[in-house]
Design a protein around this nucleic acid. Structure first.
Lengths: 235, 235
DNA sequence: TTTAATCTAATCCTTAGGGTTTAGATTTTG
DNA sequence: CAAAATCTAAACCCTAAGGATTAGATTAAA
């Protein structure tokens, strides 16, 4: 797979199960382009070993007592080494996969999968690719898309109220969502403060809220910001 | 691939380029398990054809004048048919891929890819899977992870100020981010209104803001909400 | 061309919100 | 145990914010 003259892929294993740790070690060492340079049975040790051995790949078990894999990945990402983490679990949990990828995992595989999958994942990830087995990819995307559906729904439903605002009222609300008080808004829009108040009161009526904070919250929770950013992106 | 006795995969093509439309049509019709049941050169026509022909797959060009592919996908998803959309573009744009998947595309391929990829995508997506070619998957995830990095950064940076809040102050701020006024907060926390004011003033000092709205905005923009939800999820 | 909507603004009023100080009771921490 | 932090709450002040009405000027729609 890789010339002997090139450096081998350096792997660090993290798993609280010692037997599994040793099993994977044996398995990987069968490959002549991959080396297991260290192993840890908990996340804190792993963090230190990463500094010491500078592996290119970390195989991280997600299900561990004390510090869980997810937190560990986050901390690894923070330490700005260019080590790439592949997450490992026993079961297929879309939410966990989603969160692992979110915090920066470069791959995700199940312990139940064939060892060839693991080896392949290590090789691909070490080349800078992302590796997710077919089945997990689908699970991930279902979760991914679901997490945006609520957002989209909120926007559509809320349009009924936000769409009642006039363009001037939108401008005023926009200012409010930036934390400006009435005097500021008046100055920024070159109108009097009483006019601002009139607009704001109309906004309250239309959005069915009682105060500035509620209006801002309504705007933020119902896609008003994205609307604004959309305009900004266009212009 | 599929028994003749089963119904064929019904595909609708959408592309403003007529030549490309016909090319793909010929290509797909070579497969005996897939049928092109209709074709449209713009998104609006496509929406009507979906209702009429009820395809199982839509091949949607992203780059079209008038109504673009992204908007079209959103509208298709809204109409609650169980048609699955595969997005098509000429170039590899991670942002576009991300947004297409976000609004519900079940697959994404480039026009420059081998036809076998397209056929494979159609078959897999029609089976309920998500199909992204290897290279695009990596691009997607890079974009995906990047989009969360800013969020994470904001949280860490802001922790310096939010972390100065006492637990009671956090509770009060929490109430404020739900749109409650001081009287409400007092009732909800079983303390006097003046106590609430004291807490709020301390919050203002610590967050370096001037009013309630700004405090709420600060909280929302700096990961305070997720912190709250985190606790809720644990308990 | 009227009618309706929008943007502007004033006046008047009331209260909620914001600022400061002081202080007792409780809890945490060195 | 003593010191520090936290939670509680009062009294005081003052202005910004919220509510209502009225109305002129401009603009869009019937």
């Amino acid at each position: 797979m890789m010339s002997e003259f090139n450096s081998k892929i350096r792997v660090l294993l993290v798993d609280d199960n010692y037997d599994h740790l040793m099993g994977v070690r044996e398995l990987i060492n069968l490959e002549n382009d991959i080396d297991v340079v260290a192993a840890a049975t908990n996340a804190n040790i792993a963090l230190n070993l990463i500094k010491k051995y500078q592996p290119s790949i970390v195989l991280m078990d997600m299900n561990m007592p004390e510090k869980d894999g997810l937190t560990a990945i986050q901390e690894i990402e923070k330490m700005k080494s260019n080590v790439k983490v592949i997450a490992l679990t026993a079961y297929d949990d879309s939410d966990l996969i989603f969160r692992a990828m979110k915090v920066g995992a470069k791959g995700y595989i199940l312990k139940t999968m064939a060892s060839s999958q693991l080896i392949r994942a290590i090789r691909e990830v070490s080349q800078g690719k992302i590796y997710l087995p077919q089945g997990l990819t689908t699970g991930f995307f279902e979760y991914f898309q679901q997490s945006f559906k609520d957002e989209a729904k909120a926007q559509t439903a809320a349009d009924s109220l936000l769409s009642e605002l006039t363009s001037r009222e939108e401008e005023v609300l926009d200012m409010l969502t930036q934390g400006h008080n009435y005097k500021d808004v008046a100055n920024l829009l070159f109108i009097s403060e009483t006019t601002v108040k009139t607009h704001v009161n109309n906004i309250f009526q239309k959005l069915q809220v009682n105060d500035r904070t509620q209006a801002v919250l309504y705007a933020l929770n119902n896609g008003f910001v994205s609307k604004r950013k959309q305009r900004a992106a266009v212009g």
